[in-house]
Design a protein around this nucleic acid. Sequence first.
DNA 1: AGACGTACCTGACCGC
DNA 2: TGCGGTCAGGTACGTC
Length: 278
Amino acid sequence: MPELPEVETVCRGLAKVVLGQRISSVLVRHRMLRIPVPPTLEKKLRGRVITHIKRRAKYIIMNLDNDQSAIWHLGMSGSMTIAKNQKPVEKHDHIIFKAGKNTVTFNDPRRFGLVTMDTTKHLARNKLFRHLGPEPLEKNFSAEYLARKLKGKKIAIKLAIMDQKTVVGVGNIYASEALFHAKIDPRRKAGSLKAPEIRTLVNAIRKVLRQAIAAGGSSLRDYVQASGELGYFQHKWAVYDKKGNACPRCVCSPEQTGGIKRIIQGGRATFYCPVKQH
DNA sequence: AGACGTACCTGACCGC
DNA sequence: TGCGGTCAGGTACGTC
């Protein structure tokens, strides 16, 4: 599930509980994630206090009091769970650590996720972060920036905004959602967008991400009492996974037009309204 | 350089 | 019930 809003929600949930806490134990049950879990992970985490937790793109960064940082990524199927009392170990629980009185579990069936370590001051130069574009919710992701970035590009606009070098955090769901709100056809060549369309798109990306974060935040209130699983919240998509349906405020009849369309771009499903998006 | 395609991995679901 | 095929929210890398 994790795109930017989910990762942000996981980050906030973790911060609430483990920030300032000391890690007393670390168990790694499976070392072959997207990249191997560093052999020194346990040693570098155990006994350390978590001093900061933040998100960069879809990565979670935990700063420790030894100038080291743990870098987490949830991949396609990863999750983090917090429990006051350690629950039974489940299949695909790869990393389990205790911070203060809580136990945090990283579970990832497909193992596209990762955890690694780096020196905190070297983070920006880390291979995982070096090529990343701006954060979509920060000021440097502007219409002017995006126009410059898209200029002359022949790839479809949907693929362009999913490219983490263009802007980070926009995954397959929010790419479709943002383009729907901006009324832009996902198949358009990125370089063909006019300045006003780019401005609208920047605002639409911001809007769908902010709304999703807000939805996640509201589901966080009772997170420990509930399942303890962070970042998995109900959300209403306008077009994603809605093939054949009427889109919100639909002006056409889906019986005649076929409603929301599903196509494949770059091997991934794209959903859009052929009537509203041009 | 940019545009593609493919690979990594497990599980859920669907039709036969 | 079993089996094969397809699909899934991400990213890196190889090839043209």
